[in-house]
Design a protein around this nucleic acid. Structure first.
Lengths: 132, 132
DNA sequence: TATGCACCTTGTAGCAACTACAAGGTCAAG
DNA sequence: CTTGACCTTGTAGTTGCTACAAGGTGCATA
């Protein structure tokens, strides 16, 4: 299949697919006589895997690791497990930080009852060290 | 004060401060005879404001807006309020997405009881084709 | 046959928000 | 007078794409 078809099938832009090829995430496809990329079902499967992992927040290099690991059916599963655990920890860390942010933003909104910026608690809140 | 001192005082790298100057986020400082940047307390206050807003997830252009707004003491507070509200919404959106991710990753970990990658549920889970 | 159009090719540059050099200048201490 | 910390400018790298530009291919239609 051509790149446009693969793009549609995976919800990926053609430019992104070519980018993945450059980055060694997706193996290069065969070429037609007109020099068009010609993808196989295996490419489709790999790209789906990549997109799914990226959607779960794995970095490009983590995706590369996952791809390498998943090629070795007989190897231990623990490396994959480890990567997922790491990613889970990272996601939890982000959630916690965002919740702190959210609380602070909410607080700011509630404290703002001024009508002039000169009296605005939000601006004061942001301007931590005085003398502006 | 020199750039290094300002950097230490605000927990910002000197390179970042120069970057802010280039981007028009922080006004240019006076120069000493040796061409070193010489910052005032006003610079310190502005940079603190910037870092605080950036730390709360506001984009550079939002920070610019906030700075412009906070310069007009007599203007209405509602624009500031609006920006904070918008940012709060964005943060909530991110939290929700991350929670979905977290759930999926946890699920994957729990389903993995294989010892061989060939049997690994995680790899199989990732290999699912995209479901629209 | 010509032509129009969708699709493809490579290459390069842009995005956010920094960060990391390199090559050199300034300044106070020893 | 040299050392070493600090500063200067300029440029390029980071991540993961995305957006052109200029041209080639393939197929349907006039």
């Amino acid at each position: 299949m051509r790149i446009g078809e693969l793009a549609k099938a995976t919800g990926t832009k053609a430019e992104t697919i070519r980018y993945y090829e450059r980055e060694g995430i997706l193996p290069a496809a065969d070429r037609t006589t007109g020099n068009y990329r010609d993808y196989s079902n295996e490419h489709l499967a790999t790209l789906s895997f990549v997109r799914r992992a990226r959607g779960l927040g794995f970095s490009m290099s983590q995706v590369k690791e996952l791809l390498t690991l998943s090629d070795n059916d007989d190897k231990s599963c623990s490396d994959v497990d480890q990567l997922v655990r790491q990613q889970l920890k990272e996601v939890n860390r982000k959630i916690e930080n965002l919740i702190l942010l959210r609380d602070e933003l909410s607080q700011m909104l509630q404290s703002c009852e001024a009508s002039r910026i000169g009296d605005c608690q939000i601006v004061e809140h942001l301007a931590q060290p005085p003398q502006v």
